[in-house]
Design a protein around this nucleic acid. Structure first.
Lengths: 116, 116
DNA sequence: AATAGTGTGTACTATGTAGTACACATGACA
DNA sequence: TGTCATGTGTACTACATAGTACACACTATT
C-alpha cells in the first residue's frame, strides 16, 4: 500500500463520520493547496516533506512514523539519535536487521525497565 | 570537527607515507573533479552524496558511518532497516536515546549471542 | 628555464524537492 | 436552476542537491 492510497483511505473513512474531512478542508487545516493534497493522495507527486506528513498525521490521527515510512523517510528525530553515536547504532541496527519482532520488543522492554 | 577538515587531515596523514594521496589523485580515484574535492575538504560546499562519501571512505580507509554522520546523513542501509519496521525501531531508538554507551553495547552483544 | 603536478576561484548546469496558482468539470442541495 | 463545494488537470516557481569545466597561481623537479 502506498502513502497516497493509505491517506485517501484514512481520510474517507473519517469523512463518513465527520463532514469536515473533505480534501479541501484537510488541505486548508494542514496548510497546503487542495490540488497538491489531491496529487499526494493519488501518488501523482513524490511524497511531501516530513513537516507536511506530520501535519497530515496529526489531522488524521495516524502514526507519523508509519506515514513517514510509507514515504520512504526516517523521522528526523530518529536520525538525530543515530547521528549522535553513529557507530554504536549502526552496529545495533545491523544486528537487529533480521531479528524477529518479539526479540526487538524484548530489547525495548528490557531497556525501558533497565536500571543503568 | 567538520567533515571537510577531518577528510583533509586524514588524506594529508596518509600522504606523508604514500605520495598517491594528493587531492588530485584521490579525486581521480573516487571519480570527482579535483576542484570539487578541494571544496569538500574546505567545507565550501555542502557535504557530497552518500555514494561519494562511501568512495572517499574506501579510498582513505575510514569508517563510512562516521563520515556520513559528520555529513549529517544516516547510511541508506540503516534507513532501510528502520523502514521495514518503523514503529518497532522508532520505539527502540527513542528508548536508547539517552542510554549510556555501555548499555547499548550490552544490547548489541546480547543480540549477537542471543539464540532466537 | 621549462614543465609537471599541486590546490583553488569562478561560472555554469542538470536534476530533485516541495510546493503554489488558477481554471475547470462534476455532483449536491436548497 | 442557480450556487456551492468537491476533486483534479495544467503550468509555473523557488530553492536545494550534486556536481562539471576551465582557467589560474604556486611549488617542485629536472
Amino acid at each position: 500500500m502506498t502513502l497516497g492510497s493509505y491517506l485517501r483511505n484514512a481520510r474517507e473513512r473519517r469523512r463518513e463520520r465527520d463532514r469536515t474531512y473533505s480534501l479541501r478542508q484537510v488541505a486548508l487545516r494542514i496548510g497546503v493547496e487542495p490540488a497538491y493534497l489531491s496529487k499526494i493522495e493519488r501518488d501523482v507527486v513524490p511524497p511531501p516533506s516530513e513537516g507536511t506528513i506530520r501535519r497530515l498525521a496529526r489531522d488524521l490521527e495516524e502514526d507519523p512514523d508509519l506515514l513517514l515510512a510509507m514515504a520512504g523517510k526516517v523521522s528526523s528525530d530518529l536520525q538525530a539519535v543515530i547521528l549522535q553515536r553513529p557507530r554504536l547504532f549502526a552496529d545495533l541496527l545491523r544486528q537487529l536487521k533480521d531479528a524477529p519482532d518479539h526479540a526487538i520488543l524484548t530489547v525495548v522492554r528490557e531497556v525501558r525497565d533497565g536500571d543503568w
